[in-house]
Amino acid sequence: MASASSRRTRGLVVGGGIVVLAAAGVGVWNWAGASDSGTVCSALRGDSRIKDVLGASYRGDMSCGDLGRAFREAAAGDRPGTHSKEQAQAMRITLEAVGDALGKSGKRDVDDSLRMPLAELMADYVPDTHEILKELDADYVTHLSDGEPWEDRSGVHMTVPNEALLRVMRSVSASPSAYAVLRNAEGQYAAHTMARIPGTAKGFDLSTPVVGNALAFGALDGIASDVTARLSGQEAENWNKAVVGALSAAAPAKIPDFKADPAGYVSATWAKGLNGTTKTESDAFRSQGAEYLSIWAHGRADGFKAPGKLTEDCRNGQSRKSEEATAALKDG
């Protein structure tokens, strides 16, 4: 686990990334102007767990937009990426309740006006969602059974089953704007994991964070595949272009110097590479783990060369995780 200070830094970066995406014009899709009569929101309004989480702010006639705002008030902290145990528990219960509502209704998508609030919340919890998606941290398995948040040196954490998180992430990703928020948060967090790798790292100390990033990216690839597989050809193309455009537009005007900001260098260099691309989302992103490794190795400028097998492991891991996520969503 990372230190508390690095966790706070990551939270600020993620929070800023959400603002940048909104300013970059992702919201032109205007998914928030939506009906509140969807079955998922109806199920959530009647869920006793949601009543408990929202407390005094709960009303039986809450719109989907009201629910989204109330979820953020209950689960988001004063500082991006930093949460109390009560907030983390609210987040865990919210994710489980949304996942259950999707399952009971047979829906794959949440109501339009709930998509961005949930995406922003999940982005705020990216240190946890990253671990849940890649499925390598034993703590996140251990704490599934007790159903409670826990605290360690890096802060407060919460967890839900991998398939539950996949289902909720998939449900908001009908909106390319919301998916872009999730992908941007993961990309920035993954860049920070690269930045924390010691220059002398070898073996598992090098491969674990690098391949872990690829696995998390692969899970998001699988979500994208499930979304586009259920759209018409033109709709899928439009969705892909919107996601690629959002991430490209969110890139900073100037790539930071590697020594001053290695994480910013990695994420910005990758995002800049999307400019003018004609690739679909899956083509542009399916090698993101390996590309992060290559960008980080080049930025070091110390003669380091990424082992060929590690690059191959990134590609294979990302592809395998994408297939696993797609299969889980197909069965869900």
Rank of each mutant, 00 (worst) to 15 (best):
M1D: 03
R7G: 00
R10H: 02
G15H: 07
G16F: 04
G17T: 13
V26H: 03
W31N: 01
W31Q: 02
S37A: 15
T39P: 12
C41V: 15
L44R: 06
R45Q: 10
D52V: 09
S57K: 15
M62P: 00
S63T: 15
R69Y: 01
A70I: 07
G77N: 08
D78A: 15
P80R: 11
G81M: 06
H83K: 13
E86A: 14
Q87A: 06
A88E: 01
V98M: 05
S105G: 08
S113N: 14
L114S: 00
A123R: 02
A123W: 03
D124W: 04
Y125I: 05
D128W: 07
T129W: 14
H130Q: 13
E131Q: 13
I132V: 15
I132K: 00
K134F: 04
E135Q: 15
D137Y: 08
D139S: 12
L144M: 09
G147P: 00
H157C: 02
M158L: 11
M158E: 03
V160K: 06
P161G: 04
L166C: 08
L166Y: 13
R167H: 13
M169E: 15
R170P: 04
R170D: 10
R170T: 05
S171D: 14
S173D: 06
S173M: 08
A174E: 13
S175L: 04
P176T: 03
S177E: 09
R183H: 09
N184C: 10
Y189R: 01
A191F: 08
H192L: 09
D205V: 11
S207T: 12
G212T: 06
N213G: 10
L220Y: 07
A224T: 05
A224I: 03
S225L: 11
D226Y: 03
D226K: 11
L231C: 02
Q234H: 10
Q234C: 00
E237A: 11
V244P: 04
A250R: 05
P252D: 12
P252Q: 11
A253N: 11
K259N: 12
K259E: 14
P262N: 14
A263G: 13
A263D: 12
V266K: 03
W270F: 13
T278N: 14
F285S: 06
F285N: 07
S287P: 04
Q288I: 08
Y292T: 01
S294G: 07
I295L: 09
G299I: 04
A301K: 15
G303T: 15
P307A: 05
P307M: 10
G308S: 11
D313W: 15
D313M: 15
R315M: 11
R315G: 01
Q318I: 08
A325K: 02
A328G: 04
K330H: 12
